[in-house]
C-alpha cells in the first residue's frame, strides 16, 4: 500500500511539470509580449509610462531572453509563491486568486459530494430494479441530464427564478456579506447559497454516474459470488449492499479521475453564468484582456487541483480494492 501511494506521488511530479509547460505555452501564445500590451493599455489610459519600471519588469520576467530562461524564471517564481503580476488589476496575482481559488475548490468539492450522494443510490436502485418504471424514469432523466450542457441549466434557472420570483439566484453571498470579513454568519450565508450552483454543476456528473453505477452493478449482479452469498442464506438487501455494490464501487470511485476535471471545467462556465466570485469569471476576463500571468496562474492551479483530486481517488481506490493494494 505504502509503495503504491509513493509510486502515485512520484508520478505527480512529471505530470505537474508537463502542466506547467502547457500553461507557460498558453501564457506565451498571444502575439507580442505582454509588456507591449501593458504599455498600450497604460498609454491609452493617458498615463505616463515609467521607463525604469518597464525595464525592471523586463528584467524580472526575462523578456527578450530565450524562452527557456523565461520559463525558468516563471517556474522559480511560482515555486516561491510569486505567480507574477496582473496588469489588469495592477496587483500581484497571488493576492487576487487566493480566495477565489478556495471558493472554486469549495464549489467543486460540494458538487462532487452531491454527485456521489445522489447518483449512488439511484444507480443501485436502477440496477436492482432493472426495467422497472422507476428505472425507466431515472434512465430518461439521466439521458436528459447528460444531454443538456450545465451552463444552459444555469441560464434557464436564472431566467426562471428571475421571471417567477424577480430574484437572482446567482452569487455565493448575500449582498451584506459579499465584502465582509469571514465570520460564522458569512460561512452559513455561503453554504445557503452554495447548493444552487453546486446542484447545477452536479447535474451532468450525476447523470453520467447513474449510468456507470447501473452498468457496473448490472455486470456484478449475475456473478457467482452473489449466488454464493444467496446460498448462505443472506437476505437480498444486505447481500446486494455487501457484495456486488461493494465491488461495483471500485470502478465508480475511479471515475473521479474524469468527474473532477469535468466539474472544475464546468465550474468555469457555470460561474460566469451565475456570476459567482470564483476563478471562472476572472479567468475569462483575464483571457479576454490577455492578462496572461493571471490567466496562467488560474490555469495552473485548476490543473493541479484536478491532479490532486485524481491522486486522492487513486489512493482511495487502492484502499477499497485489495487486488490493487496487494498488486
Amino acid at each position: 500500500m505504502a509503495g503504491y501511494v509513493l509510486q502515485r506521488l512520484l508520478l505527480v511530479i512529471p505530470t505537474v511539470f508537463v502542466i506547467s509547460i502547457i500553461t507557460f505555452v498558453i501564457i506565451q501564445l498571444p502575439p507580442g509580449d505582454f509588456l507591449t500590451s501593458y504599455i498600450a493599455t497604460l498609454e491609452s489610459g493617458g498615463q505616463v509610462v515609467d521607463q525604469a519600471q518597464i525595464d525592471a519588469l523586463r528584467a524580472q520576467y526575462g523578456l527578450g531572453e530565450p524562452v527557456y530562461v523565461q520559463y525558468w524564471k516563471w517556474v522559480v517564481g511560482v515555486l516561491s509563491g510569486d505567480f507574477g503580476h496582473s496588469f489588469q488589476w495592477k496587483r500581484p496575482v497571488v493576492d487576487l486568486i487566493g480566495e477565489r481559488m478556495a471558493l472554486t475548490i469549495a464549489l467543486s468539492v460540494a458538487s462532487l459530494l452531491l454527485v456521489w450522494a445522489i447518483s449512488l443510490p439511484i444507480g443501485i436502485y436502477s440496477a436492482v430494479r432493472q426495467y422497472s418504471p422507476g428505472d425507466y424514469f431515472f434512465t430518461f432523466i439521466s439521458f436528459v441530464g447528460l444531454g443538456v450542457p450545465n451552463f444552459l441549466f444555469a441560464l434557464v434557472l436564472m431566467w426562471w427564478a428571475y421571471s417567477q420570483f424577480g430574484m437572482s439566484v446567482g452569487g455565493l453571498f448575500s449582498p451584506q456579506y459579499a465584502d465582509a470579513p469571514w465570520s460564522l454568519a458569512k460561512v452559513l450565508d455561503f453554504l445557503s447559497h452554495l447548493w444552487i450552483p453546486a446542484a447545477v454543476l452536479a447535474i451532468g456528473g450525476i447523470a453520467g454516474l447513474i449510468r456507470i453505477m447501473r452498468a457496473n452493478l448490472l455486470d456484478e449482479l449475475p456473478k457467482l459470488y452473489v449466488t454464493t452469498a444467496r446460498a448462505k442464506g443472506m437476505g437480498e438487501t444486505s447481500l446486494v449492499l455487501k457484495y456486488p455494490v461493494r465491488v461495483a464501487l471500485n470502478p465508480f470511485v475511479s471515475t473521479i479521475g474524469w468527474t473532477l476535471p469535468g466539474l472544475v471545467s464546468g465550474s468555469i462556465i457555470v460561474s460566469v453564468v451565475l456570476n459567482l466570485p470564483t476563478t471562472g469569471p476572472m479567468l475569462l476576463t483575464a483571457l479576454q484582456s490577455q492578462d496572461m500571468y493571471l490567466a496562467g496562474a488560474i490555469l495552473l492551479m485548476l490543473s493541479i487541483l484536478t491532479v490532486i483530486g485524481t491522486l486522492i481517488s487513486d489512493v482511495l481506490l487502492a484502499w477499497l480494492d485489495p487486488r490493487i493494494r496487494f498488486n
Binding site: T228, R230, K232, G233
Partner: peptide, 29 residues
C-alpha cells in the same frame, strides 16, 4: 427470498460451485 428458505440455505443445505475464484467476493477476505 423469505425467511423460511433462508434458514435452510447454508444451515441445512449448502452449496459449492465450480469456479472457486469467482464464487468468493474478490474484495472481502
Amino acid at each position: 427470498s423469505g425467511r423460511e428458505i433462508r434458514r435452510i440455505r447454508g444451515a441445512e443445505i449448502a452449496m459449492i460451485f465450480q469456479e472457486p475464484m469467482t464464487a468468493f467476493s474478490p474484495v472481502h477476505t
